[in-house]
Design a protein around this nucleic acid. Sequence first.
DNA 1: GAAATGCCTGAAAACGTTTTCAGCAAACCG
DNA 2: CGGTTTGCTGAAAACGTTTTCAGGCATTTC
Lengths: 356, 356
Amino acid sequence: MAEVKPRRATAPKATVKDIARTAGVSIATVSRVLNNPDLVAADKRRAVQRALSRHDYIPNRTARAMVSQRSRAIGLIVPTLANPLFVPSIAAIEQELDRAGYALMINCHERDPAREVAQARMFIERGMDGLLITGSDHLPELPALLARHRMPYVTQDIALDTPMGPSIALDSVGALNAAIDHLHALGHRRIAVFSGPIHDTPTVNDRFVSAIARIQHHGLPCPEAWRVVTEDYSNHATRAAARRLLNGGERPTAVALTGDILGLGLTTECRAHGFDVPHDLSIIGCGDTNMGEYVDPPLTTVRMPFVDMGRTAARHLLALISGERPPKLTVLPYELIIRQSAMAPAKLKRPRLKQA
Amino acid sequence: MAEVKPRRATAPKATVKDIARTAGVSIATVSRVLNNPDLVAADKRRAVQRALSRHDYIPNRTARAMVSQRSRAIGLIVPTLANPLFVPSIAAIEQELDRAGYALMINCHERDPAREVAQARMFIERGMDGLLITGSDHLPELPALLARHRMPYVTQDIALDTPMGPSIALDSVGALNAAIDHLHALGHRRIAVFSGPIHDTPTVNDRFVSAIARIQHHGLPCPEAWRVVTEDYSNHATRAAARRLLNGGERPTAVALTGDILGLGLTTECRAHGFDVPHDLSIIGCGDTNMGEYVDPPLTTVRMPFVDMGRTAARHLLALISGERPPKLTVLPYELIIRQSAMAPAKLKRPRLKQA
DNA sequence: GAAATGCCTGAAAACGTTTTCAGCAAACCG
DNA sequence: CGGTTTGCTGAAAACGTTTTCAGGCATTTC
């Protein structure tokens, strides 16, 4: 029956008010000690600091954000984490933001553009200071929403078309073209394209289509049988597709991949058919990961600088937030990594014996 | 000289107050329409809704968080994104949280325990409703800090020792032991351990040490030459280590890896020495990724359920936040995946010719 | 010795919500 | 018809900060 103060059991959570009371000053002074210590006289400052550590005070950034109207947090929208393609980019972003004192919120939309818009809206609700948007196909609603609410954002694309805002791009199509040019320069005249599923990922489709165009641009044939698309990225599907390529009539002397991962199944299937890579078939990747280094033979590929992309995107966004005007479009260079899976094509009647 | 209202150029950002004004009601009513529409009369409700869409109103969750004292966001602390080991777990967490209407903040500490504590503190400042902490070695300061500020948290470990709070664990040591048991059951009596660097990752060290113990537990020898540690995870270092193993005096008939990735370099080096995997040497991994599926021969390994781990951790944390008491320790089962890199050891005098 | 200057401090407003409380009108009950 | 309930509404407080403003006191300046 005695009057008990409610919620004494739960966290008392020291606030500036508590600090002010035990230090015998006003909350304004506490705030000043926190943010601008030399504005306050030495004795009071010490008293406040003692109170702060006695209470083991932790400031409330939510309240801070209310008054400053800045959260010092940014939101990252990424198509998916299911394939680890974007992970190095995310790591770089996290590192860059952490260094600048910004926190990072992440959302995946699993390639559902409507969900992407919803997540952007959520980031607006949460008062993010800026957004990093990954991927290249968005609803027109998205830039409209962001503009209406004056939300700074930078996109990171793997394609060059129509960036919405300031954009960091990898020239994914150019990269695969460069791979084909490399094969051509090595002397290959029968080049096939081996691609992962082209329906769900626009980037992959772009690579596939433009690779074919590039082959023809060199005046070479690229018959249907040399345009292979796997069912999915599993080893099983990859090997099945590889079988179709290797068993079909005339064999190519080189294969360009839309993604490095495909090289594993293709190489395995080659071996199973008794073909040696690269002697009987050259393989060149297009670099999503650094996996190519580990396989046998090490994969010649075109590396895409995902880490740079993330870092640059983060920096440009921070610049944008602080009022600067970063470049509208930044294209990062790909890099041909020559390893051992591609070589000049064997002479037609080359003896198969290694010596003599 | 004319008095101009300041900051008219910048975002007017509609608030409940604006909505209330144009709808001719009080802000309380607007709030009610937003959160509890049937509390307000139909005509006013319609007026408010019209005003809401006219202003294209987006609520401010920061303000909401201030009064409700809940952010509906959780923080994830992860050692590093540099290796993609934890990514599937993160993906599962993101998905689970998104479904529950929670946002996700991520921070990496790059295995610096002091930074980990700082990041936990930052999450407290930001009013996270709960924390998900990955990895197994923490400063004692960390649980103390979390307890003092009554921050709910769940840890996901890859080791079983001394969880701080409710914990989801993968029995990483048990998994590699199971791998060794499997080799033993196949008939192998000369088993080597092949490990990545054991200094920076406690988990790897634990696996390494306990694998040796397990081999000896079976009454088998495990001489120094059969305990190989690579310099790092690069292909170069892996192959160098593999050379040491293959060139050293008596060769093992089987090798257990502390991580799947090592299988690639080891297999390549075996081939270079003219040894066939698995005929001349069985290899068994310990599953960090699903990469084993892609390599040649497909890697027999022990799979660790990272996706389950993330999902379970997220669910337990949400339960904890809503006042339930999730189990103190949840150990998720590993799974032996039998592929083709391990088989019974060849008879000593087995003819090397395939037929006859 | 008065005025001006500078330093330090506290009261109060503000940020955008939700929620409590009390008030008012209409409806219901006897 | 009086009293009670019910349904709806708005004023105001609260959440934890930062910041503006004005005032107090000590020191300097003439």
